[in-house]
Design a protein around this nucleic acid. Structure first.
Lengths: 116, 116
DNA sequence: GGGCGTGGTTACCGGCGAGATACTTCATTC
DNA sequence: GAATGAAGTATCTCGCCGGTAACCACGCCC
């Protein structure tokens, strides 16, 4: 799922699951959408939000997501120029998925904590 | 995201998003869970359900999911012996995510159709 | 005014996950 | 006796992803 129509990732053309995963399946994509859901953020803020992503991959993912219309990219003419990313309306469509992922992840964590 | 604790895929240890994606991020994983959600299915049925997945990857994914307790594997002594896979209770926990993915995928497809 | 830090991006290299295709084993069926 | 079907395994290749390093334009500091 990261495609130029991320060609090889969960293709299965007629399947809504695969269609959606083609957008959010790329590494770190859910995290990026999550952190942008509370408002626009700059590149370096996203790096701080998601410390384990490398700058290279973050750039790649942001470019892909922009290309697909999930987020917008605006260069601010500060110096040095910084770049602000924001979810588009299309990007907001994915929030139910991101939220479900976060909730299930939290529930699993709670269970693990309760079991320990 | 798909791991032996799929090591390099969305690690970010403290994040519920990454925790959940570590389970369902592997290629074809959402599809497998989706088709198992309506009841146990055999290997060859899953292959027919998801025609674009190769046998190798399907085997890998099923093994991983079994190892993590998301599904169970039962060898039936028919001849030739067949193998039946079924979601466990833990596996069922992921259904909200799978459903959200399917719904958003469907909505995107509807929009695309409406736009055309 | 030359070295240094900063924000964002790109180039190069290596590992491993994933796709494609072919082959295996055993028992039934024609 | 050949073909078929179930459930894989083997091999090869390709592309994503991670890490490191370099890049460019600007402002700072002594």
């Amino acid at each position: 799922m990261t495609l130029k129509r991320r060609k090889n990732r969960t293709p299965h053309p007629m399947c809504p699951l695969s269609d959606c995963m083609a957008f959010i399946g790329g590494a770190w994509t859910p995290n990026i959408i999550w952190y942008l859901s509370s408002g626009p953020r700059r590149f370096s803020e996203l790096r701080a939000d998601i410390p384990l992503v490398s700058a290279k991959v973050l750039t790649q993912r942001l470019r892909e997501l922009e290309e697909r219309g999930i987020l917008s990219r605006a260069v601010l003419d500060t110096s040095p120029p910084s770049v602000e990313y924001a979810l588009t309306d299309l990007g907001l469509e994915f929030m139910p998925v991101i939220q479900a992922i976060a909730e299930v992840g939290q529930r699993l964590k709670d269970k693990a904590a309760a079991a320990a």
